[in-house]
Design a binder for these strands. Structure first.
Lengths: 348, 348
DNA sequence: GCCTCGTATGTTAACGCTAACAATGTTGTC
DNA sequence: GACAACATTGTTAGCGTTAACATACGAGGC
């Protein structure tokens, strides 16, 4: 009857106030069908009056389900990971799951294992790792214990379920676009060479050139940052000054492309008059750069949704290995070229 | 003796294997002093052998401490919130706390209350809200229950502890910088008018103009996006064409500044020759834009650390109201002007 | 030698909830 | 009207851990 003082109310308090057993309160909270309408109302009134919240810890203890999923992310300040995280978060909330996040600064295998342990300690039911490097994926795949796990952008052959954007196709579209404009070949500035996305984009670039019979210039290796784009852009300008035909550049991401644009501008080269530039990601700024940036859009929100769906499937089935013995599930989200002002025909 | 099959091992399993009571296992795990060295070793061997992990749920139930903190974030795809989140995450991990994240798409008071409820359901010990709007801060301050809470960029007078960057000072520095270059006044493109940061920057802008005796042109209201920067940039170009002296623009954030640069470029205006532009945030791209962008740096990592420290303090003291009855704790992180290529003296 | 004290361990009882079963009352069927 | 079937509620027993108390044992002081 008297509301408990100085103590957060528990189910028994609600029960007493409503004049029922605590089990009936539990039934009302969980929407169990066989409770009289009037009882439901009485209990709900008591809940409101006391400001009662179910203790999720006690519930988790007995149901053996925490309703918490873990996310391991690398550098959520980069556009792609941040977007993916947002997509995962939204999908998780809609599915009624809580999300626990660990973000890693250094991208080492021991770090990722520590992060996974941290999440396991917290009794997460499953985990999504934004794992852009081969060594990390391998470290995750080697984790002991039955933790359901999905790797975003995890490459192939690890045995882990993977969701990724079709980097190869996106790169192919970008390079084909430039070739079709009449460029005799396309130079490439890669992202961080340890990242799987870099490698995949480079594969698409190279393959398209080879299929078209175009020469394949040596790619340059950046690290995703605008600074590296700028420096490698200057390197390409130098090669051009030395007589090499550099009329089209496919850049690993938009941030580096910004640096490239800057380097070209400083060299007095016009984009796309002298050199065409294509980026990757379609950051919101891309459309408003000068010139607006042709780039490859990735649907990160979709990646987030798909990885959550995959993880929930894995949790549901108990992860006794993938159904397909040849490899784990793999969902590929298409990329989409966005043609804007930074790409055009080569100079005559 | 026999390891439990098909079941994750519990303390009792470890105890049986080590030949001690489960309580001794608990003591070993928690580093209790009064356990014989040899016993510790025996227990640890048993833990390793079984691959035992303590069940954090059961522990939380009895200790009444979940070790989980909540973060409510708005649009973590924006640069500032993403950086702040990263800072909080790191600080939380170092303090041994787990982090549970909710991100909101629509910035409504009901949404933020729902998010807080979501986190309360999960029994978080405290919560940091990146709450950039007055109405949200008020909604949070009005939350029932004793949830320790810190508002990032939460403005003044809400009664909530707040950590923020000194937006007013940053804006003042930016505007003073332009005036000192010789501009007769500075135009201002605001961010989303509902955001407290917009208002604070506008205050700093206006105050500096007034103190300098410069005319105060009507500010333009954007929404942080490059698109709005572009459109409002065009509006300023039109005003300039109509005879208004527009030689310096203080833009609410770097993304909008990119749009402004674009609009000026399209109008054939040179930056900084004809018009100077100063942004806010110092996104990594800022230095590599053409021209490189003068802007105001905010130490978001520091904001993250400070807010975590404040929250932990609040949890420790039990949040029986702030010590200072006149208002809650308030920590201000200074902003820092970064002078680059987009600002210079006005045309003669 | 007895009593005290500190150390090392074990035993018991929560923590707040849900699942399983038990015990009612209530309806329907023939 | 008796029995079955169902709807509604209550009772009991855990979930796996830590806190509190109980126990046993050895060392030291007088």
């Amino acid at each position: 009857m008297n509301p408990p003082v100085g103590r957060t109310p528990v189910m028994a308090d609600v029960a007493r106030l409503a004049g029922v057993s605590h089990q009936t309160v539990s039934r009302v909270i969980n929407g169990h069908p066989n409770v009289r309408e009037e009882t439901v109302l009485r209990v709900q009134r008591a809940i409101d009056e006391l400001g009662y919240h179910r203790n999720s810890t006690a519930r988790a203890l007995v149901t053996r389900r925490t309703n918490v999923l873990g996310v391991i992310a690398f550098d959520t300040t980069l556009f792609g990971p941040a977007q993916t995280l947002a997509g995962i978060e939204r999908a998780a909330r809609e599915a009624g799951y809580f999300l626990s996040m660990v973000s890693l600064d250094d991208v080492s295998p021991t770090g990722v294992v520590a992060a996974a342990d941290f999440l396991i300690q917290q009794s997460v039911e499953g985990c999504i790792a934004i794992a852009p490097q081969r060594s990390l994926v391998d470290a995750l795949a080697a984790l002991p214990g039955p933790l359901p796990l999905v790797a975003v952008e995890g490459g192939e052959g690890s045995g882990l379920p993977v969701v990724c954007v079709d980097q190869v196709q996106g790169a192919e579209d970008a390079v084909r676009h430039l070739l079709e404009l009449g460029h005799h070949t396309v130079h490439h500035i890669e992202g961080d060479p340890l990242w799987l996305e870099s490698a995949a984009r480079a594969v698409g670039w190279r393959r398209t050139l080879e299929e078209a019979g175009a020469p394949v210039p040596a790619p340059l290796q950046g690290d995703w940052s605008p600074r590296s784009g700028y420096e490698l852009g200057r390197a390409l300008v130098a090669r051009r000054a030395a007589g090499e035909r550099v009329t089209a550049i496919f850049v690993g991401n938009d941030q580096m492309a910004i640096g490239v644009l800057r380097a070209l501008h400083e060299a007095g080269l016009s984009v796309p008059g002298d050199v065409s530039v294509v980026g990757f990601d379609d950051i919101p700024e891309a459309e408003y750069l000068t010139p607006s940036l042709t780039t490859v859009y990735q649907d990160f929100a979709q990646v987030g949704r798909e990885s959550l769906a995959l993880l929930l499937g894995e949790i549901g089935t108990g992860r006794d290995g993938p159904a397909d013995p040849a490899g784990a599930a793999r969902r590929v989200v298409p990329a989409e070229l966005r043609h804007r002002g930074s790409s055009g025909p080569p100079p005559p």
